[in-house]
Amino acid sequence: MMFLEKGDLHFVLDVLAGLGKLYVPAESNGITRFVPYGGEKTQVWLQTNTAISPKEILFPATETLYRYETGRGKETVKPVADHHAPLILFGIRSCDLQAITCLDDVFLDGEFVDELYRERRETATIIALSCAKAGPHCFCQSMGLDPLAHRQSDLQMYDYDQYYGLEANSDRGRLLLETLEKHDLLSVSGRENPVPALEFALEVETEGITEKLTGMFEHPLWEEVASKCLNCGICTYLCPACHCFDISEKLDNAHCGSKIRCWDSCMFSGYTRMAGGHNPRPGKRERVRERFMHKLCYFPQRYGKYLCTGCGRCLAKCPVGLEITKIMELVKEVENDA
């Protein structure tokens, strides 16, 4: 393991910024999120996970798929290629990295590959950061994650008091370490302080939940919990793992425009409404059920992992306290043959 003095962090960030497009967690415009590193004026924020997840870097809220022109027999379609320098994501927490692996499953690992996502993802170097404390809404441990490290990172940073301990998990991570060494920023003589286990205010039991939910599609629970939901997009938009999107038009004028893709939410009425007006998920019960079933039952069935990583963002911001941890408890309480 290599060590970095915490006071030298900004030198490291400066070096990283020279290697690619560097994103860091920061406070910006009154909210914490990942922003392009802009030197000293960037208010780097490393306390807990950010309010807005880093999903937006790899899977932007809105992006153009292609531009087009029409009119008098002339029709052209111009795909958009997102040429950019390689990405470096600094300070990614275990929950958010796990969520990125969920996005990978969806966008990269199937029969069809999303090129726009692939291009960003494949050029991205992920520098993970261990959590020094669990936030009030965190429950990643319950979701089977280790808040101190995630193997899918290129470089893992451990938070040790005055030092960061650095460990490479990939070639790219090793290359980064070499580069930082060349800049004389690392030393081998740090202390690998034993990190006390994190204290989680929130704990849930997940065992067997996928199997149990398989039989709970028609359970009255959904009606009960859904009434208070506002069907807003907060939970799904803040979630680092929610991947649903919409494709729609953006007209510049009568003859040209672009096809855009933007985040969508299973909570919205239009999500499943068909052109003729039929909507298989007409109300709150169906939509709330879909959200939790997708996260805890369908996604695990399809991809072998939960689509919830315990980041706690939806808990923190849901205006009516519809908490996924509570849902998991309620599901657990349901009699097995009910």
Partner: peptide, 16 residues
């Protein structure tokens, strides 16, 4: 402009 640049268009404001 700055305030709404961070709007997520989640429509929670409208729905509530």
């Amino acid at each position: 402009q700055k305030a709404f640049s961070k709007c997520l268009r989640c429509y929670a404001c409208r729905n509530v």
